Computed example of a mutant assay.
Amino acid sequence: MKKLLPLLLIAFVSVSALMSCSKDDVDGETGSRFKPSDFKISNIKATQRAGSSTLSISFDQTNTTDMNYTYDSDGSFRIKWTVNSTDGNTYNEDRLLATVLDAKATSAETGTIQLSPGKIADISTLKYEVYYNY
């Protein structure tokens, strides 16, 4: 039994080490190599032309990791935009982020939020959430 114990210990450590290894480090929450915080959203500009019920949004999306991102192999990430109108109604729009983005690269993106006719967006309330599309 004393000779068997070291062999069992070596086998246990070896199996544990193999199970913890992964070709790609997969995020436990998303099942992807990426997580929402790997995408930086910046340079946000929102405009609503007079008489229009559409809020136009332009922004930059940056892949902050050292890995190339592709929708097909890494899953889809989305951005949900939310804004209030000046009379307090809440409007939102949801869309895919860039489907291919190289490591450390930035992509110029656009989005829109459709408000009811005659409504004016309170741009100071504009916010977003990046999330994994399960």
Rank of each mutant, 00 (worst) to 15 (best):
K45E: 06
T106Q: 13
T47V: 09
T110A: 10
I10L: 08
K2Y: 10
S107A: 14
A50S: 13
I41M: 10
A105W: 05
T30W: 02
S124C: 10
S53D: 13
Q48K: 02
N133M: 03
D74W: 00
L9Y: 07
N92G: 14
D25G: 00
G31V: 04
K35L: 10
V130S: 05
E109T: 00
D74Y: 00
P6C: 09
L126G: 03
P6V: 11
T125S: 15
A108C: 00
G118D: 09
T47Y: 01
D94F: 01
D94I: 03
T54E: 07
I41V: 14
Y71W: 12
T47Q: 07
E29S: 14
M1A: 15
K2R: 09
V100E: 15
S37P: 04
Y132L: 06
C21F: 00
A108K: 04
D102M: 10
E93Y: 12
F12P: 02
S124A: 15
T82I: 02
E109L: 09
L7V: 14
I123C: 06
G75M: 07
D66I: 04
D27I: 00
N84C: 09
I113R: 04
S42P: 08
G51V: 01
D38E: 03
K127C: 06
E29M: 15
M19C: 07
N84E: 11
K104F: 01
V26S: 03
T82P: 03
L115R: 02
D74Q: 03
T112F: 05
K104L: 06
K40N: 14
S42C: 13
E29Q: 14
G111F: 05
D74S: 05
N43K: 12
T65M: 07
N43D: 14
V15I: 14
M1L: 12
S53K: 13
K2L: 09
I120H: 05
L55H: 08
I41F: 09
T62D: 11
A108P: 00
P36N: 14
A121D: 04
G88H: 09
T65Y: 02
G75F: 03
K104N: 12
D72G: 08
T54S: 07
V15M: 06
D72Y: 11
S76A: 13
A98G: 10
Y131D: 11
G111M: 07
A103P: 08
I57V: 08
Q114T: 09
T86C: 12
K2S: 10
K40V: 10
P6T: 01
L96G: 11
L9K: 14
K45R: 08
G88P: 04
V83E: 01
